[in-house]
Amino acid sequence: MNPEFIRARSTVVKLVRRFFDERGYLEVQTPRLVGLPGQEPYLNPMWTEVEEADGMVHRTALITSPEYALKRLLAAGFDKVYDLGPCFRNGEPWDGTHDPEFMMCEWYRKGIGIHELMDETEEMTRSILTNLPVFRRMTVAEAMKEYADVDLEPLLGNREAIAEVCRAHHQTVVDTDTWDDLFFKIFLSEVEPKLGDVPTFLWCYPASMAALAQRDPDDMRYALRVELYVGNLELANGYVELADPTELRARFEEEQALRRSLGKDVWPIDERFMEAIPKMGQAAGIAFGVDRLAMLLAGTKSISDLMPIPARERF
């Protein structure tokens, strides 16, 4: 254990909290244990049980992110909220950038768009990593052109077209590959590793990767989604939030269908969350990996260095 690293993580948590407190955000400790966790097809919640005194047992999961609870707070009338606490994800590689229990700061603000969201994320990050240069903002299509020499536009929604590009770029193409899988083969091989040392916001994702982001009203083939990369680490993932209940339900149903096709378990849509959504209004929010920020401050490439007890010693 290196005491400097332990201190670095503690410092980062304090600084993140101070940043949002000074800007009038309300910190809310939302529940870690919920009955209906996020249904993202590629995230795996950890399941347990909550038992009442009379023996009634509730199937319960640890949250993968505090997203649903924070959006319900927006719907209840709060304008600027954040949650800073542990989140839990199963089945991720213990490769230095993941820990099954990691510290996330997720914040939401009403009335802002994608650029204001990037502005605030940059200000927060640079308030802690004070010698970072100004962040670059690239759309996903720009990054694909710049680093992989791929024109994304004609490939959107066309699996056969992107499969052809994959083959030309010496990627495997198998029957079970979705459009998104094929996109990622190129992106992970040729774009992400080349983003380099300039902190970069990648934004404007293909609509198939919208998750819970609104589609871009000016071009519905894209979604108002953004990710932040610093020093080859993915630090944050944010959206202008989808607030249309009909489209949201369709997205959840698609997620459930994809989970089923991947052989994963599926649980019901959180109807209390669905009821709240129309009241949420226009808002944007982002989930930020605090441990990764601390890794950059401390100058370590392993999240385990920051943990008082690393995953390999805990389990």
């Binding site: 993202e40 590629y42 991720e92 590689p93 993941h98 998104d180 990622f184 993915e234």
Partner: peptide
């Protein structure tokens, strides 16, 4: 390198 982009499937780069 094993990669989990979170928003996508798990990959090996």
């Amino acid at each position: 390198q094993h990669i989990n982009p979170g928003k996508g499937a798990a990959f090996v780069r």
